[in-house]
Amino acid sequence: MMVGICDSLERSGHVRRERAPGDRRAYAVTITDSGHRELARAEAAVPAFLDDTFESLTPAEREQLSDLFGKLLGAHG
């Protein structure tokens, strides 16, 4: 699955994949300028996406959901 994602990002010009020095089995994946621009666009879109997604929740429900996600992430990190 990860290889497919890297293949797609590389075809789009968002990452560059090169053999890792000292280990012919591994690759070094580097984000390109184009990838940085796309990442910035995606990050800028997140707040509006979250507002639209959770607009039916009250502020208290949003806080409760945030606390629950934090608890889940803390249990696995």
Results as ranks from 00 to 15, higher is better:
1 M>H: 10
1 M>T: 14
1 M>C: 06
1 M>P: 11
1 M>F: 06
2 M>F: 09
3 V>N: 15
3 V>A: 09
3 V>T: 14
4 G>P: 07
4 G>A: 07
4 G>L: 04
5 I>G: 02
5 I>S: 02
5 I>F: 02
6 C>L: 12
6 C>I: 09
6 C>D: 11
7 D>H: 09
8 S>C: 11
8 S>D: 13
8 S>Y: 13
8 S>K: 11
10 E>W: 05
11 R>H: 09
11 R>S: 15
12 S>W: 13
12 S>R: 11
14 H>N: 09
14 H>Q: 08
15 V>D: 14
15 V>M: 05
16 R>H: 13
16 R>M: 07
16 R>F: 08
16 R>A: 10
16 R>T: 12
17 R>M: 11
17 R>D: 06
17 R>P: 02
18 E>F: 04
21 P>G: 06
21 P>D: 10
22 G>L: 08
23 D>E: 15
24 R>Y: 13
26 A>F: 09
27 Y>A: 07
27 Y>I: 09
27 Y>T: 13
28 A>F: 06
29 V>N: 09
30 T>G: 04
30 T>R: 09
30 T>H: 11
31 I>N: 07
31 I>C: 05
31 I>T: 15
31 I>F: 03
32 T>G: 14
33 D>P: 06
33 D>A: 06
33 D>R: 06
34 S>I: 08
35 G>S: 13
35 G>E: 12
36 H>M: 05
37 R>M: 05
37 R>E: 12
38 E>Y: 03
38 E>W: 13
40 A>S: 01
41 R>I: 08
44 A>F: 03
44 A>K: 05
44 A>R: 05
45 A>H: 05
45 A>V: 01
47 P>K: 01
47 P>M: 01
48 A>I: 02
49 F>C: 07
49 F>E: 14
49 F>N: 00
50 L>C: 03
50 L>G: 03
50 L>W: 02
51 D>R: 12
52 D>G: 08
54 F>Q: 01
55 E>W: 13
57 L>R: 00
57 L>E: 01
57 L>G: 00
57 L>T: 00
59 P>Q: 00
60 A>R: 10
60 A>E: 02
61 E>C: 00
62 R>D: 00
63 E>I: 03
67 D>G: 10
69 F>C: 00
72 L>S: 01
72 L>V: 07
73 L>Y: 10
74 G>L: 13
74 G>W: 00
74 G>I: 06
74 G>Q: 02
75 A>R: 13
75 A>F: 02
75 A>D: 15
76 H>L: 03
77 G>N: 03
